[in-house]
Computed example of a mutant assay.
Amino acid sequence: MAKYLILIYGDERRWDAETEPERAAKGAAHEAFRRAAGEGLLGGHELEPASTATTLRSATGTAPTPTDGPFLETKEALGGYYVVEAPDLDAVLALAARLPELASGHGGVEVRPIVEHG
């Protein structure tokens, strides 16, 4: 079985504007996702807003310098992630398709295989 990182993106302003019933429905959908993943779910978390991020960058041969916020200005921010184990890419894509952010009109989900070193 391979491991995959599922990255969840969306517009933070729209997430902040969600009503309590919308948040409850999204929470229920994430719970259904976790149940569907079963023992293949290895971890995951919702992230604090991008404004709380600190980015490290350096030029060759210089010490890293921290800066506030994400490195790139984008409309969509990384809002959370899951790490799952699945038999193949098709299986993880079918699982990721259950995430409620895909139906929000402003979100996206990226699935990336994890490189495992022996």
Rank of each mutant, 00 (worst) to 15 (best):
M1C: 03
A2D: 12
K3M: 06
K3S: 11
L5F: 13
I6H: 05
L7I: 07
I8D: 00
Y9A: 06
G10L: 11
G10F: 06
R13P: 07
R14P: 07
W15T: 12
W15R: 14
D16G: 12
A17Q: 09
E18F: 10
T19H: 10
T19D: 05
P21I: 04
R23N: 11
R23Y: 08
A24F: 06
A28V: 06
A28M: 00
A29C: 03
A29L: 00
A29N: 02
H30C: 05
E31H: 10
E31D: 14
F33Y: 15
R34C: 15
A36C: 09
A37Y: 03
G38Y: 12
G38R: 10
E39N: 09
G43P: 06
G43S: 05
G44N: 01
H45K: 15
E46D: 15
E46T: 14
L47G: 09
L47K: 05
E48G: 15
P49F: 07
A53E: 08
T54K: 13
T54G: 02
T55C: 09
R57N: 09
R57H: 10
S58R: 13
A59Y: 08
T60Y: 13
G61N: 05
G61M: 06
A63W: 13
P64R: 07
T65F: 08
T67I: 01
D68Y: 06
D68A: 13
G69V: 07
P70M: 05
F71D: 08
E73D: 12
E73C: 03
E76V: 07
E76G: 08
E76L: 13
G79S: 04
Y82W: 13
Y82P: 07
Y82A: 14
V83S: 06
V83P: 02
V83I: 14
V84A: 07
E85D: 03
L89C: 08
L89D: 11
D90Y: 00
D90E: 14
D90S: 06
V92A: 00
L93G: 00
A94G: 12
L95P: 04
L95Q: 01
A96Y: 02
A97Y: 01
A97R: 13
A97Q: 06
R98I: 00
R98V: 00
L99Y: 00
L99T: 04
P100W: 10
L102H: 00
L102N: 03
A103F: 02
A103C: 04
A103G: 04
S104W: 00
S104M: 05
G105E: 02
G105F: 07
H106A: 01
G107Y: 05
V109R: 12
V109F: 08
V111H: 05
V111A: 07
R112I: 10
R112K: 15
P113F: 08
